[in-house]
Design a protein around this nucleic acid. Structure first.
Length: 427
RNA sequence: GGAGGGGUUCCCGAGUGGUCAAAGGGAUCAGACUGUAAAUCUGACGCGAAAGCUUCGGUGGUUCAAAUCCACCCCCCUCCA
């Protein structure tokens, strides 16, 4: 099913995964005429990658499947600076310790998708701190800085609003980010003969900067591919739910929550996301779309997408768990859950809050579980008939969770609204 | 260093002495309708059961009364040096 080296760009184009190509047909020839080395950088800006940032990483995997050698670069250096591209304001610098910690978290995440043991085109993991931390200031300014024209830099679309718009500004620190990323490309060319950089479409300016610098410092032509940022058809921000960002770390976003996130994708987006996030062929995806069109009611695509992505990120165990919880909760048959099922729900990552000390009033419980952010909101939810306990509608703010009624002697399954569940566990 | 503009509740943004917990929009949440959609409609949206309490960059002050006036300080932007 892997695309042959001949058509990786065509496959990406068919998946609408190409935003811009630096190099055009020459790049296509370059990729089809042999196994090349391709890199994509990820800055440590949080404890985990989120679903949006994983698209370029999957593209890197697609390159590897097509026979090329991928380099996943961790921005241990650039993460200390902060990329200003299309950001509306200057960001707070993170401390060295924090960035270092995030670098460590990022390593396994980047590694999990790529094959590091497949001979010639095995993946490589690098950190740009390795070639920047000991570079002396004067040397850097003379060797690298001299190749950049400030006149050209301030023309870049990615920093335009920071420079032109009143009320915004940009520090020299962030402004110089481009030099570092450009230098990365030149270094990777030198060290690994890396000739292609992949990045989000917001990285265009940084990528072309690297192409120019590599030409000047290494006298060689290299190329770039940008991947569109994932958007939603309704214009809202992709990758967020009521509980916040959807992370790829199972500790931060449970497989169940991830599965639910994809299951709730809008019809208008789901086929595009299948192309972005699954390794199903474009033909297979089109067949799904066709079959959905011909059938009534709920589409199947969301379920397929949810299954594909959950399995990709958390393996078949994660997927099974996510499905099991989803089936149990949304079948409406909460009373039918066995004791083992309940224990399993907790293990599978359904949010759970532990209580001690006997019966508790519903308002207090809602606040303690974060299902309501204040007593007032808790009362309002109850007033709106939005709260369920063990499948029963709560109709009074005086309702008490009576431990003698707990499922399996300790659990209460709380539901707020239509699809937000939480376990209360009494000990 | 100088001149000017600005910092309002999650975001944008009105408010220039009482009628202000603070217009309007967005986001968010809940309900109805549905497919655990979309669109639409309804409601909520600082805390508190309430009385009331705490908010408008910070600190002090004027006043019966301040987001609004005064002083000092901090931060951001633009232009000049």
């Amino acid at each position: 099913m892997a695309a042959s080296p001949l058509d990786i760009i065509s496959d990406l184009e068919n998946r609408e995964l190409v935003s811009q190509l630096a190099g055009g047909d020459e790049l296509k020839d370059h990729l089809s005429s042999g196994s090349r080395t391709v890199y994509c950088g990820f800055d440590p800006t949080a404890e985990s990658l989120h679903v949006g940032s994983v698209v370029p990483l999957l593209v890197l995997k697609r390159f590897q499947m097509a026979g090329h050698k991928p380099i996943a670069l961790i921005g241990g250096a650039t993460g200390l600076i902060g990329d200003p591209s299309f950001k509306t304001d200057e960001r707070q610098l993170n401390s060295n310790e924090v960035v270092e910690q995030w670098v460590e978290r990022l390593k396994p995440q980047l590694s999990q998708f790529l094959d590091f043991d497949c001979g010639e085109n095995s993946a490589v993991l690098v950190n740009n701190l390795d070639w920047t931390q000991d570079y002396d200031v004067l040397g850097f300014m003379r060797d690298v800085g001299k190749h950049f024209s400030v006149n050209a830099m301030i023309q870049k679309e990615s920093v335009k609003q920071r420079i032109e718009r009143e009320g915004e500004g940009i520090s020299f620190t962030e402004f110089s980010y481009m030099l570092l990323q450009s230098y990365d490309f030149a270094q990777l060319y030198k060290r690994y003969n890396c000739t292609v950089q992949v990045g989000g479409s917001d990285q265009w300016g940084n990528i072309t900067g690297g192409i120019d610098l590599t030409r000047r410092m290494e006298q060689n032509q290299v190329y770039g591919v940008t991947v569109p940022l994932v958007t939603k058809s309704d214009g809202t921000k992709f990758g967020k739910t009521e509980t916040g960002t959807v992370w790829i770390s199972a500790n931060m976003t449970s497989p169940y929550a991830l599965y639910q996130f994809w299951l709730n994708v809008a019809d208008a987006d789901v086929y595009r996301y299948l192309k972005f996030y699954s390794f199903l062929s474009v033909n297979e995806i089109e067949e799904i779309e066709q079959s959905d069109k011909n059938s009534q009611g709920r589409r199947e695509a969301q379920g397929i997408l949810a299954a594909e992505v959950t399995e990709l990120l958390h393996g078949s165990t994660g997927l099974t768990a996510a499905k099991r919880i989803s089936d149990a909760l949304f079948s409406g048959d909460i009373a039918q859950l066995t004791n083992e099922d309940l224990d399993q729900l907790e293990l599978d990552g359904l949010p759970c809050t532990v209580f001690a000390g006997g019966n508790k009033g519903i308002v207090e419980v809602l606040v303690d579980t974060d299902l309501a952010k204040s007593n007032k909101m808790a009362r309002e939810f109850i007033g709106n008939n939005a709260i369920n306990v063990n499948g029963q509608l709560v109709d009074s703010v005086n309702f008490e969770l009576d431990v003698s009624n707990a499922l399996n002697g300790k659990y209460f399954l709380l539901k707020r609204g239509k699809k937000l569940f939480h376990l209360a566990k009494f000990e």
